[in-house]
Design a protein around this nucleic acid. Structure first.
Lengths: 105, 105
DNA sequence: TATTTGCGCAACTCAAAAGTTGCACATATA
DNA sequence: TATATGTGCAACTTTTGAGTTGCGCAAATA
């Protein structure tokens, strides 16, 4: 199994988990109650998120609270940076204009 | 097949395609030359990217130039926005402090 | 100590997705 | 017109991943 952050967020359940624990750390059982699936299924999603370090466990007795890891989430932000100029400047429109000119000649 | 931008971005080849065409529109053949796989395999990735509108085709004779659609990529940026406060403020540290206090009592 | 509870791990099933080969079709070019 | 080229589509195989059931272990509780 890959442990890639992009693969990790491709699943809707895992994105929901991240949204939940970004507000408050939760245990696997607490998460499972929110979704219509078994604890083990949620546990598998946690495993994926943990492997790629998007979440961090904190053991408290027999319970494990999973925390959101903002630092890792920033990697998405960095990856997106390469595309920012494509929407922050008129680059796109310029590109399209050039294409139109090429087509016409 | 889903046509979800998160699912589309989860594949490394598709991310590479996006990086390539964000700079310059390319034909499927031109893309396939960059990767160690058949044209048909690349074509399938293009189909996924096209379905979720991360890329836009432009027919020129028998060739098809695929353009990067920055507008769609912004949806990813917007999703990420919900987590920005988690790294832009001291929210995390505060959360950890509260947890520590809870543990101690 | 015995029982309950919270959790992770392993084996399994089933569905989805990645990649291949082969084909059809339209546009170029000889 | 005949041939080469660029592309998409369909059928197929193989791999991956989501979800289930069953188990074992450690911590809490009676």
């Amino acid at each position: 199994m890959k442990q890639d952050i992009f693969q990790a967020i491709s699943d809707p359940t895992r994105r929901a988990i991240l949204t939940l624990i970004a507000i408050q750390a939760l245990t696997p059982n607490a998460m499972a109650e929110k979704f219509d699936m078994t604890r083990q299924a949620v546990s598998k999603h946690i495993k994926v998120l943990h492997k790629c370090e998007l979440i961090k466990p904190e053991q408290r007795g027999r319970e494990i609270y999973y925390h959101f890891n903002a630092k890792k989430m920033q990697e998405f932000d960095h990856w997106l940076a390469q595309f920012r100029q494509n929407w922050e400047t008129q680059f796109n429109q310029l590109d399209q204009l050039l294409s139109t000119i090429k087509k016409q000649k």
